[in-house]
Every structure is written in C-alpha cells, then in structure tokens.
C-alpha cells in the first residue's frame, strides 16, 4: 500500500497548506458586519474597537445625499434598519455605484466598508448598494386601478 501512503501524504500536505492559507486569510481579513446601531454600541462598550475596519449595512435616508463638484466627495446618511432613530453620516471619496438612489422612491440598502471616525462620521472606502425593487428580488404585482378595471392608471 505504498501508493496509498504517498497519495495520502500528498493529500494531507496540500490540505495542510490550503487550511493554513484559509486560516490566516480569515484571521487577517475578516471584518465584522454590523448595523449602525450595533456599531455604535460596540464602540461605546469597547472603545478600542473604534479603529478596526468594519462592514456596515444601513438604509439610505431619502434626500440625505449631497455631493460637490469641487472635489470627489459624496456625503449621505444611513439609518439602522431596525431602529430608525439611529442615524450615521457617511463620507465616500470614490465613484458611487449607479444604483445609488436617494429619491426615496425605492428603498436602498447601502453596504459600506470603512471606519468610524472620532468626529462621528463613517469614512467609507467601499460602497455597495442593494436596491430591492430594481433587481428581481421583489418583483411586484401591479395594482389594479379601481375594481374590475383592467387598464390604465398603472405605473410601470
């Protein structure tokens, strides 16, 4: 069974290398994924976590978006999905994804990676938007305008 032993030695060797890479990869790069409220609570409880990078997911507050054409800087406010009284201002200095829409006509969930600054602003280094009704996540039944009326009054 010499062959089997060789084969398994190779298998174990590669498995060990891959496991090591995965283990160090996770411990080096993993970040916590929090809502704004969770982030603020965490910093309050253990202030030393303030400088750790985190991923935060919040709902975009309609009308809160502003930009300047003097420099590439986007500012907006997100609120906690569960507790809308918790809000967090965000700064972002890269181009935004196209689905970013603060008109309020669609609910936009913003997923940001970055750091919470001492001045209370979240400095995002990466912004992704998830915009439910835009994609097929939530296709909808059209509302019928008036009972029995099959046509008209429908917004696409």
């Amino acid at each position: 069974m010499r062959r089997d032993r060789r084969f398994f030695a190779g298998l174990v060797g590669v498995a060990a290398v891959v496991s090591y890479l995965i283990y160090t990869g996770i411990s080096d790069t993993m970040v916590y994924y929090l809502t704004p409220a969770e982030l603020l609570t965490r910093i309050e409880v253990s202030p030393e976590t303030r400088d750790q990078g985190v991923k935060v997911s919040g709902m975009l507050v309609p009308g809160s978006y502003a930009n300047s054409t003097d420099e590439l800087l986007h500012t907006f406010v997100v609120e906690d999905p569960d507790d809308t009284s918790v809000r967090m201002a965000v700064e972002f200095r890269h181009p935004l994804p196209d689905t970013f829409d603060d008109s309020g006509e669609v609910e936009v969930e913003v997923v940001m990676q970055g750091r919470y600054r001492p001045d209370g602003v979240f400095e995002a280094t990466e912004v992704l938007t998830k915009c439910g009704s835009r994609y097929e996540a939530m296709p909808e039944m059209p509302q019928q305008a008036g009972a029995g009326a099959g046509y008209g009054g429908l917004i696409g």
Binding site: V18, G25, T29, M30, V31, K55
Partner: peptide
C-alpha cells in the same frame, strides 16, 4: 459560505471579501 456559517453558529455576522480570496 463562512459568513453564513459564522452567523448560524455564533449569531454574529462577519464579512469575508476580496482581500481574503486574494490572500488565499
């Protein structure tokens, strides 16, 4: 699958992104 597993096992959500995949 790691974020899903961690959330299922410990309840805390974590994110593993491109840096992890590149490093490995």
């Amino acid at each position: 699958m790691f974020p899903l597993l961690t959330e299922g096992l410990t309840g805390s959500k974590v994110a593993v992104g491109p840096p992890f995949f590149n490093q490995v």
